[in-house]
């Protein structure tokens, strides 16, 4: 049987340099929590409700909402550096579509690289997409707060309930008491 040589279209697998997460130290009193809002419908609401819930279990000072002009781009490197200078904790949201979940994940990982504990809020149907991007961004298995899809069409009451139900998960991911990455390290 004749054999031929063919070239692979896929780049040869090069190990992605792993990105170290921000250390999970004791959350300072009056911590500055930054919510990176990508402008998707109900993103601001779910972030605000989650911040309110976190305020019950953490000592939070200023809660800042940083709004991106579009969900389709991550924050810039400069924006990330500026946010890192004043933020103790970051939550990026809302990843309820393909591009926006990839970009919000990117935002969270950028903050981790700059030493700020972070997490990203996504909906359940995008877990596989986010897992793929986590791998390429050097944080395989990065954590996320997963909400049932859809979120954007939910009532305020429902959003408050989702925030209440997911607050402990967000707390653990920011504080480091339930890191999934220890096994991946």
């Amino acid at each position: 049987m004749p054999r031929i040589e063919v070239l692979s279209p896929v780049p040869a697998a090069e190990p992605v340099a792993p990105v170290a997460l921000a250390p999970r130290q004791t959350i300072p009193a009056q911590a500055h929590l930054t919510l990176i809002c990508n402008g998707k419908p109900k993103a601001r609401e779910i972030l605000s409700f989650m911040a309110q819930e976190l305020g019950e279990t953490m000592s939070l000072g200023e809660v800042e909402i940083f709004s991106k002009p579009t969900a389709a781009f991550p924050i810039t490197d400069q924006q990330a550096r500026e946010l890192a200078q004043r933020s103790d904790l970051v939550i990026a949201a809302l990843g309820d579509c393909g591009a926006c979940s990839a970009c919000s994940l990117h935002d969270a990982i950028q903050m981790e690289r700059l030493g700020v504990p972070a997490t990203v809020v996504i909906t359940d149907v995008f877990q596989r997409t986010v897992a793929s991007f986590s791998r390429t961004l050097g944080v395989e298995g990065y954590h996320s707060v997963v909400l049932p899809h859809p979120v954007s069409s939910r009532s305020e009451e429902r959003l408050r309930r989702l925030a209440r139900e997911s607050a402990q998960t967000a707390h653990d991911q920011l504080a480091g008491s339930a890191l999934m990455l220890a096994a991946a390290a």
Binding site: M1, I4, E5, V6, V10
Partner: peptide, 19 residues
Amino acid sequence: MVEVLEVEDAEVQELFFER
């Protein structure tokens, strides 16, 4: 660096589909 694969001619299509 591109990967070079040596494949039986009759198997090329299936390889590309599988991957």
